[in-house]
């Protein structure tokens, strides 16, 4: 599903590369934690998958697309297949829960009857049925993150990328969000999650890819956050 082959990314303003000869392969339906300290290259890794950035060297393959070679006009097609969730939710505060999720479908030109059918389904999946007409400000942090997940998932992406999705949430809410992400992963969606949250990584026992100074220093099939913990 995802393959990085000897990928390096350098920025003119940085002395050392953000990613340095990284090779990682993720199969369809896998759940992968991407861990490492700030500045280790996690965000760059995710940005490459979305073609927010292009690699300086190496190849990035997502669902048979050679991402770096993808012509500009085809980039939206890639992004329709890769959903993303962020630490800061990024909801539209002037739209209701329903409208926030529907927005993702409206802007890719989905017909209205599809939107009316699919949005309630996905709201139910993320546990927000009955809250479709609420505004984001009326929701708790955990509920807001559920809306963001619903929006990322509503178009049934092949890959769901989560960049510190529990970073702003308390441990209990974080646990709920992880259960939700696990449920989404069980539908066959490949899940990549960048995180600093030790307890989550340790409790889930999923594949862990650890980055440090732009290099992969660990890739465990059922890992924990810190070696030897």
């Amino acid at each position: 599903m995802i393959r990085l082959e000897h990928v390096s990314k350098t920025y003119k303003t940085l002395a050392r590369p953000a990613l340095d000869d990284v090779s990682v392969s993720v199969d369809k339906g896998e759940f992968v934690f991407l861990i490492g300290p700030s500045g280790s290259g996690k965000s760059t890794f995710l940005q490459l998958l979305l073609r927010e950035e292009v690699p300086t060297r190496g190849r990035v393959i997502v669902a048979d697309w050679n991402v770096a070679k993808l012509p500009r006009r085809r980039v939206p097609k890639l992004r329709q297949r890769v959903g993303c969730v962020f630490q800061d939710f990024r909801l539209l505060n002037n739209k209701t829960v329903f409208e926030n999720v529907a927005f993702a479908l409206e802007v890719i030109g989905k017909p209205r009857h599809t939107i009316r059918k699919v949005v309630p389904e996905v709201l139910q999946l993320v546990g927000l049925d009955g809250k479709a007409d609420r505004m984001p400000a009326e929701l708790s942090g955990g509920e807001q993150q559920r809306v963001a997940i619903a929006r990322a998932f509503v178009n049934r992406p092949l890959v769901l990328m989560c960049d510190e999705p529990t970073g702003n949430l308390d441990p209990d809410t974080s646990q709920d969000i992880m259960l939700l992400l696990e449920r989404i992963n069980r539908t066959g969606t490949t899940l990549i999650m960048a995180t600093h949250d030790h307890s989550i990584v340790d409790s889930m026992r999923r594949r862990v890819v650890e980055l440090s100074e732009g290099r992969v220093i660990r890739d465990d099939a059922r890992g924990v956050y810190g070696v030897g913990r």
Binding site: L50, R72, R73, P76, K77, L78, R79, Q80, R81, G83, C84, R90, L92, F103, A104, V107, I108, G109, R151, A152, N155
Partner: peptide, 17 residues
């Protein structure tokens, strides 16, 4: 910018944005 940022991420075409 929040709207257009989301539009970009969910794969709206440049033209639509």
């Amino acid at each position: 910018r929040t709207e257009t940022g989301i539009m970009r991420l969910v794969g709206a075409s440049r033209w639509y944005t």
